[in-house]
């Protein structure tokens, strides 16, 4: 069964932006062979109450994943130690930590089913010249990671092209 929806919106409707500050973005690569071991080490961190705000991964040409993990800065050391245990066993493993980053995330009606949402986001941010560090769009949600000091500016730019409740 297929349902076709038509949206008449001067600006794309959202259910509101959520902003989070005080985060660290940890970037590392995992080979396919390291996946299960890394999973096990991350599972062990659960006992310490470590939580994530966002996890992203991109295929490395069939050789594994380039990973980005967004966490409260208080967990940075634990995550780095955990990842180091896994990637240090193979040559070339690098962990890159970007401290003091912020997150804006939001969702809207049927975002997962509509074209043009990502285009609106990336066009607005490019015009506004805001440095985006990472982005994920899945399950009707948009997650955008910025340097923390550019978070308010980024929110302003996005609010010009997306409608917020009550605006």
């Amino acid at each position: 069964m297929e349902t076709i929806a038509v949206y008449w919106e001067p600006r794309i409707k959202t259910y509101g932006f959520t902003k989070v500050r005080g985060l660290s973005l940890i970037k590392f690569g995992l080979s396919s062979a390291q996946m299960s071991e890394a999973g096990l080490e991350l599972w062990r961190l659960g006992d310490a109450g470590v939580e994530f705000y966002l996890i992203l991964g991109q295929d490395l040409g069939g050789q594994g994943l380039s990973m980005q993990m967004l966490i409260r800065d208080q967990w940075e050391q634990k995550i780095v130690e955990c990842v180091e245990q896994v990637i240090s066993r193979e040559p070339g493993g690098v962990i890159n930590v970007i401290p003091s980053v912020g997150l804006i995330h939001f969702y809207g009606p049927h975002f997962g089913d509509r074209y043009g949402i990502a285009d609106t986001v990336f066009d607005a941010l490019a015009k506004g010249d805001v440095p985006l560090l990472a982005a994920g769009c899945s399950a009707s949600s948009i997650y955008l990671v910025f340097p923390e000091e550019r978070l308010s500016e980024s929110e302003k730019i996005l609010s010009e092209v997306f409608e917020l409740p009550g605006s």
Binding site: M35, L45, E51, D59, L65, G136, S138, A139
Partner: peptide
């Protein structure tokens, strides 16, 4: 936001040699 869910997912698929081509989380 539980790292155990993430960890077990990577562990399970990695152990079964099922490829992961991409990954992204949302609120839920």
């Amino acid at each position: 936001s539980d790292v155990r869910v993430l960890g077990l997912s990577l562990f399970a698929l990695g152990r079964a040699r099922i490829p992961i081509h991409g990954l992204a989380s949302s609120l839920s």
